[in-house]
Design a binder for these strands. Structure first.
Lengths: 116, 116
DNA sequence: TATTGATATTAGAATATGCGAATATTATTT
DNA sequence: AAATAATATTCGCATATTCTAATATCAATA
């Protein structure tokens, strides 16, 4: 299994890496909400929330269902987002650094390190 | 369980949300490496890799053990990082959008939506 | 101690991101 | 067809990120 990075991984992580967007996603996990609902909950302007929803949508984290003039947004990858949040909740901010021994690179052995 | 966002969650997600940094972390998961090792593997300058390692260290994702003039970096929250990668690997870029019904906000019922 | 190897830091330019204000769009209602 | 509600888009500016080039630091060695 090669450690290939898919571009959309970074897009997803970047999209989640903003306080307002993470909050939006957390709120949407509780239930589908339209833009006004989110606006009522979070301290951001309607335009700004709309902008963040666009980012989340481009990352395919959320999608919406049109309902008249409303757009009901929801998390379309709940397993992913819930999973990430679960992992974060299990982490302590100051978790003990797991001490690890050093790598193999040595001056007298130029091939000691793991080159490609 | 309130949906409180811890600031460091965003810091962690933001740190992982960069292609070079995600690659660094993936390589470190395979084994501890010094900066030169990473430099040999990834297409970035030494200075740049050092800068990214600083970001990852500030997010408490990696740490290092000093070994003479070398710094052997390693992922100090392997469960978290492996978990996130696992979740990402399980996602298809074009996964079917789970269709969800709309929220409750209706014109004739101003309290229908879930306000704070 | 001068040199070399390994890594970090700084400065500065290019680019990207975030956000408010204003405006546009679309659907519903009167 | 206006008026209104819900949402999106655009513009412009402030700020943040990212990267390169140059330089500094620090440890090991000749």
């Amino acid at each position: 299994m090669p450690a290939v990075i898919e571009n959309y991984w970074v897009t997803i992580l970047k999209a989640l890496g903003h306080p307002t967007r993470l909050q939006i996603v957390i709120e949407l996990l509780k239930g589908t909400k339209c833009v006004t609902d989110i606006h009522d909950i979070l301290p951001a302007s309607q335009a700004n929330i709309s902008q963040h929803l666009t980012v989340l949508r481009n990352a395919r984290i959320v999608d919406f269902a049109q309902d008249g003039s409303q757009r009901c947004y929801y998390v379309c990858r709940p397993e992913l987002v819930e999973g990430v949040l679960e992992l974060l909740r299990n982490e302590q901010p100051e978790s003990k650094a797991k001490k690890v021994q050093c790598c193999l690179r040595k001056p007298e052995n130029a091939d000691g390190h793991q080159a490609v």
